[in-house]
């Protein structure tokens, strides 16, 4: 199966130097594989390192360790390699209001990557720009191309950002919370568009989100991230419907319940506030510690948790990094 992987990430680690104190390990030994025509969802709370993974994979950050294989070949940080890499791996940013330059027209945003990666010549670039805009359902393309970003709505901007990412005809698309800044009413449109483009162009997609429902709907596999580590991974239905890791269980239960009563909501709010206090305290520590990082919030915490938990397979293709499932530990 790994033979036809579009992007293979092995033992990726990203550390940040802090002004005082030890290094902050934002991404800790993460391995993942993206396959053409399939979406892998990366879920986790804010600050868990999701965006850092995307930025490291977008070659915007220098990873401290690990390797990235593009189409089976290792890709280094050499200038020519990065150029080739960017032709195949593209990124959609979270905030469409920030990711488009207010000083340039839509046409500029799309023409530049087309020309840079020799996807168009000066002569046919206008047609290629229109074709790109049409492929993300922005019509009439001629009018849209001449507009400035501030004249577009959030959804339109994100479509432009997606079109820009598609300009070099990449094989891999990294979408960093592509709909979190958009109105709820248009989120589904954008996600459906990404899904269609994925099938049409056989893209390997990494979908970063903290929305479990869309993660389940749009991806075939889900990885759950907690404080820089992948704590659980598996087929999306399995991970959402029968979560193994206590953290995934917590995430799943945190999803809002439309039918809840007032008192249930108040109780849920209290739990959330308690969890937030613990989370803030954890963030302040920010050290590279051994053992399970979730053990302070974990309802099942036990003495073994002070040492590094193993990845245990709970079902075929579904694994959790937790002592609970280790046969010998019980």
């Amino acid at each position: 199966m790994s033979g036809d992987a579009a992007l293979d990430v092995r033992h990726l680690t990203v550390e940040f130097i802090q002004r005082s104190g030890p290094k902050l390990r934002a991404v800790d030994d993460v391995s993942l594989t993206l396959y053409p025509g399939a979406t892998l969802a990366l879920v986790g709370e804010s600050g868990s390192g999701k965006s850092t993974i995307v930025r490291a994979l977008g070659r915007l950050l220098k990873p401290s360790g690990g390797e990235v294989l593009l189409g089976g070949r290792p890709s280094t940080l050499h200038r020519s390699d990065v150029r080739e890499y960017r032709r195949h791996v593209q990124l959609v940013f979270q905030d469409p209001f920030a990711s488009l330059n207010p000083a340039h027209t839509v046409a500029h945003h799309l023409a530049r990557p087309l020309l840079l990666h020799a996807q168009a010549t000066r002569r046919d670039v206008a047609e290629r720009v229109e074709a790109l805009l049409r492929s993300v359902n922005l019509v009439p393309p001629g009018d849209i191309a001449r507009k400035y970003p501030h004249e577009l709505s959030g959804g339109q901007r994100q479509r432009v950002a997606i079109a820009r990412a598609l300009a070099p005809s990449p094989q891999v698309l990294l979408a960093d919370e592509p709909v979190s800044m958009l109105d709820v009413s248009i989120r589904l449109e954008i996600l459906n568009l990404l899904d269609e483009l994925k099938s049409e162009r056989d893209l390997a997609m990494l979908y970063v989100t903290h929305d479990l429902a869309t993660a389940r709907h749009f991806s075939s596999e889900i990885m759950v991230m907690y404080r820089g580590e992948i704590v659980e991974r598996g087929p999306s239905d399995e991970v959402i419907l029968s979560p193994s890791h206590p953290y995934t269980q917590l995430l799943a239960s945190a999803a809002p319940m439309p039918g809840a009563t007032r008192s249930a909501l108040a109780a849920a709010r209290r739990t959330r506030q308690g969890a937030r206090a613990v989370r803030d305290a954890e963030r302040r520590e920010a050290t590279v510690e051994t053992g399970c990082k979730f053990r302070r919030r974990c309802p099942h915490a036990m003495p073994q948790c002070a040492s590094r938990p193993p990845d245990v397979e709970t079902a075929p293709g579904h694994s959790a990094r937790c002592w609970l499932f280790d046969q010998g530990a019980r």
Partner: peptide, 21 residues
């Protein structure tokens, strides 16, 4: 800002990022 990062992802050269973006 994201649009400068996006220009880097698109493969723009440094001087072009300074002068054009």
């Amino acid at each position: 800002r994201d649009y400068v990062l996006a220009a880097r992802v698109a493969g723009e050269k440094t001087w072009r990022i300074i002068f054009v973006e």
